[in-house]
Simulated assay, not measured.
Amino acid sequence: MTFESIAVFCGSKTGNNPLFAAHATSLGYLLAEKNITLIYGGGNKGLMASVANAVMEKCGKVIGIIPQVLTEWEHQHEGITELIVVETMHVRKRMLYEKCDAAIVLPGGYGTLDEVFEMLTWNQLSIHDKPIFILNSGGFYDGLLLHVDKMMREGFLYDQPAKSFTVISTPEEIFHYNQ
């Protein structure tokens, strides 16, 4: 599958490890260079800003989708190609996932985990069937991946985790799957 648009789910904070922001910026540059539209949460803070600003710096296309309630917290990004303000988080997540060909998850907090598990659930229920990549920057998701393995061993998952998502260590690796 050739990706024309990729949804990026990530934190509205940068986290403590400088690698997180470096990976977000690198991913943004790569998306722009490969003419792939960034679909993201519309914020102008944290890793969200890092990836969006990098795409814009290289004259790429960025579509941000943000619920009205978060325009104060995440400070909507006014310098992107298109900003869509929606009523609720549910509408945001649905639109993000509908507008993309694939999704990549960078480090983040509760909201990022909420988004990744909703996408995984939608794929499991055949609501969508889009590739999901987890960028395990500096081992950020190691604990989560161990827990997912435990869910499989304990009999709570229908498929092997490798069928649900692909774990990558660098932003460049996603393009091995963009055929």
Rank of each mutant, 00 (worst) to 15 (best):
V55D: 08
M95E: 01
M1H: 02
G138N: 11
E118M: 11
M152E: 14
V91G: 07
D142F: 01
L157R: 14
S169F: 03
I104V: 06
G11T: 08
L120A: 11
F140P: 00
T170F: 09
I65H: 09
F9T: 01
E33I: 05
I84Q: 10
N123K: 15
K13V: 12
V167F: 09
L47P: 04
N35I: 05
I104K: 04
M1Y: 01
L125W: 08
K93I: 02
D114V: 10
H23A: 12
I104P: 00
W122L: 10
G60T: 13
E57C: 03
V86L: 12
I39V: 14
Q124C: 11
W73L: 14
I174Y: 08
V62T: 11
S12N: 14
M56W: 10
D101W: 00
D142V: 01
I127T: 10
W122H: 06
C10H: 06
F3E: 00
K93F: 01
Y110C: 10
D101H: 00
I84E: 03
K163W: 08
A7C: 09
N123D: 08
K34F: 12
I80D: 01
A162F: 07
Y177P: 00
G64F: 06
E57G: 01
A21I: 03
G28S: 07
Y29N: 02
K130Y: 01
D159M: 15
G15D: 04
F20H: 06
K99Y: 00
V69P: 04
L70H: 13
I174L: 13
C100T: 05
G46D: 05
C100M: 04
S169W: 06
N16K: 13
M119Q: 15
L27Q: 04
I134G: 04
V148F: 02
E115I: 10
H128Y: 10
H75T: 05
K45T: 08
Y141C: 07
T166I: 09
I39S: 12
P161M: 09
H176A: 13
N35V: 03
T166M: 06
L70E: 11
W73T: 12
L145Y: 11
G139V: 07
V85C: 05
F117E: 06
G11M: 09
M95D: 02
V51E: 02
L19M: 07
A24Y: 04
K61I: 13
M152Y: 15
E82K: 15
L135Q: 03
N35P: 00
Y177F: 11
H147R: 15
A21C: 02
G143A: 15
W73N: 13
I168W: 06
F9E: 00
